[in-house]
Simulated scan of single mutants.
Amino acid sequence: MPEDSIQHIDFEDLNRRAISRPLVSHIYTADPSAHVFNGKIYIYPSHDVDAGEAFDDLGSHFAMEDYHVISMDSITSEAVDNGVALHVNDVPWAERQMWAPDAHEKNGKYYLFFPAKDYEGIFRIGVATSDFPVGPFIPQSEPIKDSFSIDPAVFKDADGSYYMYFGGLWGGQLQRWREGKFNAAEPESPVAHLPADNEPALCAKVAKLTDDLLQFAEEPRDLIILDENGEPLLAGDNDRRFFEASWMHYYQGKYYFSYSTGDTHFVCYATADNPYGPFTYQGRILNPVVGWTSHHSICEVEGKWYLFYHDSSLSKGVTHLRSIKVAELKHDAEGKIQTIEPYG
Rank of each mutant, 00 (worst) to 15 (best):
C203L: 04
C203N: 15
I224W: 02
I225Q: 12
A217N: 11
C203Q: 12
G236Y: 01
L226D: 08
A217G: 04
L223C: 13
L202P: 05
D222C: 03
D212C: 05
L233M: 11
D211T: 12
F216M: 07
E219R: 13
N198F: 07
L213K: 08
E218R: 08
D227A: 05
I224Y: 04
Q215S: 14
L226E: 05
D211A: 13
L202I: 13
Q215M: 02
E199A: 12
D222H: 02
E218K: 08
I225A: 08
L214P: 00
N198E: 14
L234E: 06
I224E: 13
K205M: 14
R221L: 09
A217I: 02
T210H: 01
A196H: 09
D212G: 04
K208H: 03
E218W: 10
G230K: 12
A196E: 14
D227K: 07
L209K: 01
Q215I: 01
K208F: 06
N198G: 00
P200K: 12
L194Y: 07
E219M: 12
D222L: 03
E199H: 08
A196L: 14
E231S: 13
K208Y: 00
L209C: 01
A201W: 07
L234R: 13
K205F: 05
P220F: 09
P220M: 04
R221G: 07
D222E: 13
P232S: 12
A235L: 02
E218S: 11
G230E: 11
L223T: 09
E231F: 08
Q215P: 00
T210W: 07
N229R: 13
A201I: 04
L214A: 15
F216E: 09
L209V: 00
C203Y: 05
T210V: 00
P220V: 10
L194V: 04
L234Y: 09
L194C: 06
N229D: 13
E219I: 11
L209Q: 07
E199M: 11
P195K: 11
P232G: 11
L214I: 00
L233T: 06
K208S: 06
L194I: 05
R221M: 09
N198S: 01
F216N: 12
A235I: 02
N229G: 03
P232W: 13
Q215D: 01
D212I: 06
T210R: 10
I225C: 11
G230H: 10
L209F: 12
P200C: 10
D197R: 02
D197G: 01
K208D: 01
L214C: 13
N198H: 15
L194T: 09
A217H: 02
D212V: 03
L226F: 10
L223I: 13
P220G: 12
D197K: 14
A204D: 08
I224T: 15
E228V: 05
I224D: 06
I225T: 10
G230A: 07
L202T: 00
L226Y: 11
L226M: 10
L213T: 00
P195Q: 12
P200E: 12
L194G: 02
K208E: 14
K208W: 00
D222I: 04
L214G: 07
L234W: 02
C203H: 07
A204V: 06
R221Q: 14
L209G: 01
N198C: 08
N198A: 03
A207N: 05
L202M: 15
A235C: 08
C203T: 15
A196M: 14
E219D: 11
T210S: 15
D212A: 00
I224G: 10
